[in-house]
Lab assay of single mutants.
Amino acid sequence: NQESVVAAVLIPINTALTVGMMTTRVVSPTGIPAEDIPRLISMQVNQVVPMGTTLMPDMVKGYAP
């Protein structure tokens, strides 16, 4: 099972992602793959992401799977 990126904290809208904001977990449905965390650093979320929420591609500005 592939791990997906999950919010480790509440991430406010338009916040640039940092390593500490993200964790990984096997979830269903799957979100952004864990191995993409290095690509996500400094990208901004386009909505509020509650802690424990799986990051989906459409939540991150400029992210393309």
Rank of each mutant, 00 (worst) to 15 (best):
D58S: 15
G52N: 14
P57S: 11
T23Y: 10
T23S: 15
V6F: 02
V6T: 13
Q2I: 10
G31E: 02
T24L: 05
L10E: 14
N46T: 13
P65A: 10
D36H: 11
D36S: 12
I41A: 08
Y63D: 04
M21G: 02
R39E: 03
E3L: 04
I11L: 13
R39T: 08
A16I: 12
I11C: 02
V6P: 00
P12L: 06
R39M: 11
Y63E: 03
G52H: 13
M43C: 03
Q2C: 03
V60I: 15
L55V: 14
P50W: 08
T15I: 08
R39N: 07
M43H: 14
T15W: 05
N14T: 13
N1L: 03
V6W: 02
A16S: 07
I32W: 03
E35V: 06
T15K: 09
E35I: 05
I41H: 06
G62H: 11
G52R: 05
Q44F: 10
N46E: 09
I37P: 01
G31D: 01
L17E: 00
A8C: 03
V5C: 03
N14G: 14
L55E: 01
A7H: 01
D36G: 07
I32L: 05
T53N: 15
Q2Y: 05
T30F: 06
Q47F: 11
K61P: 13
T24F: 10
V5Q: 00
G20L: 11
N1E: 15
M51F: 11
N46F: 07
P12Y: 06
I13T: 07
L40C: 04
M56F: 07
V26E: 15
T15Y: 08
P65H: 12
V26F: 05
M22L: 13
N46K: 10
R39S: 10
V9F: 14
G31Q: 03
L40P: 00
I37G: 12
S28L: 09
T23K: 12
A8R: 08
L10K: 06
L40Q: 00
V19I: 08
M21Q: 09
V45R: 00
G20T: 14
L10Y: 07
T24A: 09
E3D: 10
V48P: 14
P12W: 06
D58R: 07
M21W: 03
V9A: 12
T23C: 03
V49P: 01
V27C: 03
S42V: 05
V45H: 00
G31M: 05
T54G: 02
L10W: 07
P12H: 08
V19K: 12
L10S: 12
A64N: 10
V19E: 14
N14M: 09
T15R: 07
T53M: 14
M22N: 01
S42L: 11
M59A: 10
Q47G: 11
V48A: 12
V26P: 08
V19W: 12
R25H: 15
A64C: 06
M59C: 03
M21R: 04
D58K: 12
E35S: 07
D58G: 13
P50C: 05
S4V: 02
M51E: 15
V9L: 08
V9G: 10
L40I: 15
Q47Y: 12
T23G: 12
G20M: 10
V60M: 05
N1F: 04
Q44A: 14
N14S: 07
P29L: 15
N1V: 06
V60Q: 00
A16T: 14
E3T: 04
V5E: 00
A8V: 10
I32F: 10
P57A: 09
R39V: 03
I11P: 00
Y63W: 14
T30C: 04
P65E: 15
L17V: 03
E3V: 04
V9K: 14
A7V: 03
L17S: 01
V60Y: 01
S4W: 04
M43R: 14
A34S: 08
A34G: 09
L40D: 00
N46R: 11
P50E: 12
A16H: 14
V45F: 01
L17T: 01
Q2K: 03
Q44K: 09
R39Y: 13
V48R: 15
M56K: 10
L55K: 00
A34E: 15
V49L: 09
S42A: 14
G20Y: 14
A34P: 14
R25W: 11
L10T: 09
R25C: 03
N46L: 08
A7D: 00
P38N: 09
V26A: 12
A8Y: 07
V27W: 02
A34M: 06
P12G: 11
E35K: 03
M56Q: 10
S4A: 04
G52W: 09
V5M: 03
A64T: 13
Y63A: 04
V19M: 07
Q44T: 15
V19D: 08
M51Q: 15
A64V: 13
M43F: 11
D58V: 11
A34R: 05
S42C: 05
V60L: 08
A64D: 09
M56C: 03
M51V: 11
V6H: 03
T18F: 10
T30W: 14
L10R: 07
N14H: 14
L10H: 09
A16V: 12
M22Q: 01
K61F: 07
M56N: 10
M51S: 11
S28V: 07
I11F: 01
A8D: 08
S42D: 08
N14D: 14
T30K: 04
M59Q: 07
Q2D: 15
G31Y: 02
I32Y: 03
V26Q: 13
Q2A: 13
A34T: 09
M43A: 12
T15Q: 07
P50I: 08
P29G: 04
T53I: 07
Q2R: 02
V27Y: 03
S42R: 05
E3F: 04
M22F: 13
L17N: 01
L40K: 01
M22T: 03
Q44P: 06
R25P: 01
A34K: 10
G31N: 01
P57R: 08
Q47H: 15
K61Y: 11
A64K: 14
P57H: 10
T54D: 01
N46Q: 08
M56D: 04
P65S: 13
G62M: 06
V6E: 04
V48G: 09
K61G: 08
S4T: 07
N46Y: 03
I41D: 04
G20W: 12
T24I: 05
M21L: 12
D36N: 14
Q47I: 05
G31A: 07
P38Y: 08
P50D: 15
Q44E: 13
P50V: 07
G20F: 09
M59P: 01
A7S: 15
T30P: 14
R25Q: 12
I41N: 06
A34W: 04
A16G: 12
L55Y: 00
T18C: 04
I11G: 00
A64G: 14
T15D: 05
E35L: 07
Y63G: 06
E35M: 04
V48Q: 15
V60C: 03
M51D: 08
M51H: 15
